[in-house]
């Protein structure tokens, strides 16, 4: 991955979050939640700043970031697409829906399209099992998705920019 140069502004945001938690190492996970909330993702360069502020090693920060699936080192697409791979969705055909998304977007799970518009991820049970299989785009939840609908869902976002789905 090419090295990113963080702006002073970004560095300050990170420092502020760390300070909010008294630069305590034991608050690492809370710091990561908050920083990811503000920046959207946690690339290596951001982790370095956090490690410095909390006076701990980059290895430890990296170890925690990679342990938890909620933390991501890759920026999400403008419209993050998540396929529910919980058991209820799986038995109702989530795999076929996923492979159709992969085919249409030409990306693998965890990747973003080259124009940065879509990213594709899996998650486990959003609590709407009654609507299985479930797909979420940003905050919007699509239920009972059939592989044939995948094209239409993507088109909804590809052409007209839909505000509901845009997340920080």
């Amino acid at each position: 991955m090419p090295k990113i140069k963080l702006s002073d502004n970004t560095i300050n945001i990170i420092k502020e979050v760390c300070a909010e938690f008294d630069n305590k190492e034991s608050e690492l996970i809370n710091v990561l939640h908050k920083v990811q909330g503000k920046l959207g993702y946690l690339p290596a360069e951001v982790q370095e700043v956090i490690a410095r502020e909390l006076k701990t090693s980059v290895a430890k920060v990296y170890g925690v970031v990679t342990f938890y699936s909620f933390f991501t080192m890759i920026p999400k697409g403008e419209f993050p697409i998540s396929i529910c791979m919980g058991t209820a969705c799986y038995v109702r055909g989530a795999e076929q829906v996923l492979s159709e998304f992969k085919r249409q977007l030409k990306v693998e799970v965890g990747e973003s399209t080259s124009d940065g518009k879509f990213s594709l991820n899996c998650l486990r049970c959003v609590g709407a099992c009654g609507l299985a299989p479930v797909v979420t785009v940003g905050e919007k939840v699509y239920g009972r998705v059939a592989p044939t609908q995948v094209k239409d869902i993507i088109a909804e976002y590809r052409n007209n920019v839909c505000d509901v789905a845009r997340t920080a």
Partner: peptide, 8 residues
């Protein structure tokens, strides 16, 4: 207001 119904 559960997740399922909110989705609908």
């Amino acid at each position: 207001g559960g997740t399922g119904c909110k989705a609908s």
